[in-house]
Amino acid sequence: MKKKGGGEDGGGNWMDTYGDLVTLLLTFFVLLYSMSSVDSKKWDIFVRSIYPDGKTPSEKAASQTPLIVDSEAEKADETTETQADPAGDPVAPENEIPDSEDLYIQIAAALQQAGVSDVTVTGGEDYTFVVFKDKAFFGGDSSVLTDQGKHILDIFCDTIKDSNDAISQMNIMGHTAKANPNQDNSVRGDRMLSGMRASEVCIYIQEKGIVDPDKLVSIGFGQYRPLEPNDTPEGRASNRRVEILIIDKDAKERSIEDYYKEIQDNINGDTTVILREDGSYANQAAQGADAGVVDGAAPAVEPVPGN
């Protein structure tokens, strides 16, 4: 009689489980190996096929996250554009010359926007007086217009191009400085240099065809109308200059000395604009009644050799 219980497999069932485990492990390592060398394009296609909209979770998050930096910049731009005074009028950016129909303001604003400095522009009763300082147009001992000088004159001419009918005369005046403060320059060289500088500017303006040629006058004053003593580099830099006097149509007749006296006495300080090296501007009256055109406008400058 046989005993109940007891199998006939001799306990071999565990081999099936073991075999399944080994197969799973092998499959897992094969999968790891295949992923280590997966084709990026195929993997991208596989991942996108899982999601109905074709976007992975990271892409969805990126598309929903605001760009903080750009948003802040846009807000700053909007604030600048919409900034207004209590009356509701837009506020002009700091240090920017406001718009005006006055010719002297238009000239000063155009030059400032172009980054031109060391220029003083005065609006008189019936004239506009512009002083270009030092290295604006010429190098030391030279009457050849620099590229910078031509660029400045281009801006100047473009600003006054519609004013021909309102102009009766335009004087272009060249000035030199003493190369040696204790000795006069050569008479011939000094007169020729200042005259040629004035003529070069005059010719450049005439070739633009914006002002009738008979209204243009070039004058060379040489070293004889200094604005500052010639014993310092700053003083000589102030004395080397080109001035442009624009006389309005129907202006009362007066001599060149009358215009110079008004400028030197700062009669029009409230309507004089000084363009500084840092891009800002100042009103001549704010510099003080005794400052004079050059005292108020002259920043530190590098000395230029020669006249």
Results as ranks from 00 to 15, higher is better:
Cys157Phe: 02
Glu234Asn: 05
Leu245Pro: 04
Ile205Asn: 04
Gly220Met: 06
Asp290Glu: 11
Thr176Leu: 04
Pro90Glu: 12
Thr82Cys: 08
Ser117Gly: 02
Ala92Phe: 09
Ile219Glu: 10
Ser63Trp: 02
Glu243Tyr: 01
Thr79Glu: 11
Thr128Val: 15
Val30Arg: 10
Glu101Pro: 00
Asn239Pro: 00
Ile160Phe: 04
Arg241Ile: 03
Ser186Glu: 14
Lys55Trp: 04
Phe156Gly: 07
Gly235Cys: 10
Val91Trp: 00
Ile263Ala: 07
Ala251Cys: 11
Leu227Asp: 13
Gly5Tyr: 10
Leu153Ser: 07
Ala291Glu: 10
Leu227Ile: 06
Lys3Tyr: 09
Lys4Val: 09
Tyr204Ala: 00
Arg236Thr: 08
Gln64Asn: 10
Gly54Val: 05
Val116Ala: 03
Thr146Met: 09
Thr65Asp: 04
Pro181Thr: 08
Cys157Gln: 03
Pro98Lys: 01
Tyr18Val: 13
Gly189Asp: 09
Tyr51Thr: 11
Asn95Cys: 07
Met1Thr: 05
Asn268Tyr: 15
Ser49Ala: 12
Leu145Arg: 10
Val22Ala: 15
Lys4Ala: 08
Ser49Gly: 15
Arg48Asn: 09
Gly115Leu: 02
Ser100Gly: 08
Gln206Lys: 15
Lys249Asp: 14
Pro66Thr: 05
Asp165Thr: 12
Ser186Asp: 14
Gly6Phe: 09
Gln284Ala: 14
Phe156Pro: 12
Thr122Trp: 05
Trp14Met: 03
